[in-house]
């Protein structure tokens, strides 16, 4: 199914998303990756407030190239999500509603997605120049010292993604591979 969604994602919209759906996202999302997640997790552990409210938000796992003068952002494709798995259930329990990245999530994240009615999307890894054309505006909102790993707020228009893990237990990576796998010697 092809679907268009706008942020913030509501529970009704999320309930309607199924693994394999192709979705175009329009609205405001956050971008954060390894180093920013480590800092957020340290704050969560200490019970201190985060520099950004993740409730209701989508986090895009991405660290862009520097923007050329006059451009909102450089190339900005997804990074491998699995490295964020250790930090993710806590953020989902705080109300994070969506994640965009690429690659496998662990069982703890998949469970937290179902428990919190959230969704995990994949963008096409390595399509970073193309995705940059869908970013209207971007600004650093926390941890500027981290350079490419700072937390950014981005306004995107028709950002193409595909649903990997949904609240119904669907997993596109498992389903897709099963459909095309061939036994040795067949």
């Amino acid at each position: 199914m092809n679907k268009n969604v706008t942020t913030p994602l509501t529970d009704d919209v999320i309930a309607d998303l199924r693994a394999g759906d192709r979705v175009c996202i329009t609205g405001t999302i956050l971008a954060a990756r390894d180093a920013a997640h480590k800092r957020l997790a340290e704050l969560v552990e200490k019970g201190e407030p985060l520099p950004v409210d993740v409730a209701g938000q989508i986090i895009y796992y991405a660290g862009p190239t520097p923007a050329r003068p006059g451009r909102p952002i450089g190339s900005v494709g997804p990074t491998t999500s699995g490295r964020m798995d250790v930090y993710t259930p806590a953020l989902l329990d705080m109300g994070l509603k969506g994640m965009i990245g690429k690659g496998y999530r662990n069982q703890a994240v998949k469970d937290a997605i179902v428990r919190n009615r959230a969704v995990y999307f994949a963008a096409v890894g390595g399509a970073a120049a193309l995705i940059a054309q869908r970013v209207e505006a971007a600004r650093v909102i926390a941890y500027e010292d981290l350079g490419p790993e700072a937390i950014r707020e981005m306004r995107v228009v028709d950002f193409p993604v595909i649903v990997v893990n949904d609240i119904h237990g669907g997993d596109l990576y498992e389903q897709g591979r099963l459909q095309f796998e061939r036994e040795v010697g067949s």
Partner: peptide, 14 residues
């Protein structure tokens, strides 16, 4: 053998 794994482009199956 690698293509028979069915992983496909971006791991979406193929």
């Amino acid at each position: 053998r690698c293509n028979d794994l069915g992983i496909g482009p971006q791991g979406l199956g193929g």
